[in-house]
Design a binder for these strands. Structure first.
Lengths: 158, 158
DNA sequence: TATTGTTATACTCTATAACTATA
DNA sequence: TATAGTTATAGAGTATAACAATA
């Protein structure tokens, strides 16, 4: 018989609550730039490195189905923040890369998000944040930890 | 100028990914019982203590608008897992309480969720989990930390 | 007048299947 | 045949406004 525990002690519940609160805050911070949390994520990933990222890899990193990436890239491409170029080596792949304007917007967005996050993370002792980050990474990416564009794509567990 | 950081180092992003993965896993574990993560949360809270919980308090604890609680309670009430009784002291309040069957289902559900969670949390050192829980609580409930039914209702920050 | 619960509505996010083009 | 991207669609989650009952 399982011990009766409080919901507010459940890490899954706390993850959901914390994630929701932080995402709402980030969403408000990004609104003036016409970005949402998810398009912000795409823009960030498109701006890392210079070789570009495939949509498949975006999907794997963000934990989404590839079909959900299409509209996100469409939007950013229409606004001139990223380009979508077929990979010469394998024309099935489309490489997503941030434009100069995309890099500028990304930097602005990053500052706004950081500021919004600080409202929440200031409440956590600084040394705890590194450990928090480490623990979250192990939970979010159980198989292998993404470091940069070079590592193998990781898929969400079933 | 903000330093260029990797999205996969961003705690907000990691929170979202970790929360999503854990919630999906919990959702699958609860499916055989006809519960979702949110109805599970209501059932858990309705089963804590004997006095019952107001819908307002459920909303505050779960970080939802009170209007979103109605359908969740409706469903559980229809299935005989909780009761909805007007508070004699203030008939505006409706007290949500788990029935005997509700307690049985809650216990079964709790075990299933715990088992699903273990697949993720086993990867985190045990002593880190307590610190993780503590940090998440401070992020999720910045104002005051809910302990039981007795504490003041806490509202999500704007 | 203020508060609890309720209804209604619109929008976003999530999940899935089927299609195309390239390999 | 297998993989990357795309389209379409349905369902769940989220956010808001307005209303009735009670205080």
């Amino acid at each position: 018989m399982a011990a009766k525990r409080l919901l507010t002690d459940d890490i899954g519940f706390l993850l959901s609550r914390a994630s929701g609160a932080v995402a709402r805050s980030a969403s408000k911070a990004l609104a003036p730039l016409g970005l949402r949390v998810r398009s912000y994520s795409v823009l960030m990933l498109a701006g890392e490195g210079t070789a570009g990222v495939t949509q498949r890899r975006l999907a794997a990193t963000m934990g989404l189905d590839p079909s959900q990436i299409v509209a996100l890239v469409d939007d950013l491409e229409t606004r001139g923040l990223v380009t979508r170029t077929p990979d010469p080596a394998d024309r099935r792949n489309k490489l997503i890369t941030a434009t100069d304007e995309g890099h500028r917007v990304r930097e602005d967005a990053q500052q706004r998000v950081d500021q919004a996050h600080d409202d929440y993370f200031d409440r956590v002792p600084h040394e705890s944040l590194d450990e928090l980050r480490h623990a979250l990474r192990r939970i979010a990416f159980p198989d292998d930890l993404p470091v940069g564009h070079e590592s193998e794509p990781s898929t969400a567990p079933e």
